[in-house]
């Protein structure tokens, strides 16, 4: 066990635990955007930074391991300032309209993304629709790397996408930005499953949103088992008006770790392909 103090309170966590885990153990809600339990921390978003006594710069709670005797501040003026600025920088450059977590954090830290002049540079760009299953709207991308990790070593190992370019021009891309059907993509949808901002979206959700019919509060979520092979993947069916509109898997599930294949993710359609006259009203 490791003993440290967070905001003056002593905390004991197992060896190898991160500062984030220590914070969660004592109920401190630390904002995260690029962090996910099932993925290798990239600590790129920096919204989880905390103040570590003796450290010149702030440290990322998601990646930094707790060490004996650490003294951590999670709500000091420096921490609040950095978190607020990071959120303002994101909000000023990226469309966060479908990023509920980021918007909630913006509110909490009083972030005002409109403060950087009249025409700040943004990542605004046309939406990419090049296949029947996914929509990619990189104007909403905060470059958290989660999709790249899920497509890569942390889950799917297909490596259809990577971060390309550099600096403010860095972006998620296939090789030479070829369309997904020409790329290595196998449509497992694991990138969408981990996207925190809605930059990656199932076509089903995108189309309903475009028609103004996406109604998340009215949706039910039901866990069941995939109807295809014998691995036994848990599917969470998101249902709106008796139609499956999205399929996810619980990240804590020991079989899937939140990941699925193309059949589990999209193969449900056969239960709701009805003759045109029978479409629910």
């Amino acid at each position: 066990m490791v003993e440290l103090t967070i905001d003056g309170a002593p905390v004991r966590v197992p060896d190898g635990a991160t500062i984030l885990e220590a914070c969660r153990a004592i109920g401190i809600d630390t904002p995260t955007l690029c962090f996910l339990e099932s993925l290798t921390p990239v600590n790129a978003c920096r919204v989880c930074v905390v103040e570590l006594e003796g450290s010149r710069a702030l440290v990322p709670a998601c990646a930094r391991r707790a060490e004996p005797g650490m003294a951590i501040q999670t709500d000091s003026p420096r921490v609040r300032h950095s978190r607020k600025l990071v959120l303002e920088l994101l909000g000023s450059s990226v469309d966060l309209s479908t990023a509920p977590d980021a918007r909630r954090y913006c509110e909490r830290y009083g972030a005002d993304p409109r403060r950087f002049g009249a025409t700040p540079a943004t990542v605004a760009q046309p939406i990419k629709i090049d296949n029947e299953l996914y929509v990619r709207d990189y104007a909403k991308c905060i470059l958290c790397y989660k999709c790249v990790e899920a497509c890569g070593v942390d889950a799917q190992n297909t490596f259809a996408i990577a971060v390309a370019g550099r600096g403010f021009d860095a972006h998620i891309s296939t090789e030479y930005d070829v369309a997904l059907p020409d790329s290595a993509c196998v449509y497992c949808g694991n990138c969408i499953g981990v996207c925190p901002t809605g930059a990656l979206m199932f076509s089903s959700e995108h189309e309903l949103r475009a028609r103004g019919q996406w109604d998340e509060p009215a949706q039910t979520q039901t866990d069941t088992i995939c109807s295809y092979c014998g691995v036994g993947c848990t599917l969470t069916l998101h249902v709106q008006e008796n139609e499956i509109v999205k399929v996810t898997s619980p990240i804590e599930n020991g079989v899937t770790h939140g990941h699925l294949c193309v059949k589990g993710r999209f193969g449900y359609q056969y239960v709701q392909n009805r003759p045109p006259g029978e479409l629910s009203s």
Binding site: V42, A44, C45, L89, V163, G167, F168, A170
Partner: peptide, 25 residues
Amino acid sequence: FRDESCGQCVPCRVGTVRQEEAMAR
């Protein structure tokens, strides 16, 4: 710095751009 930021973390990726813009203003 805007040109040479690797783009990995938000404070530097966007901060170097906003710094350049703020300087102009």
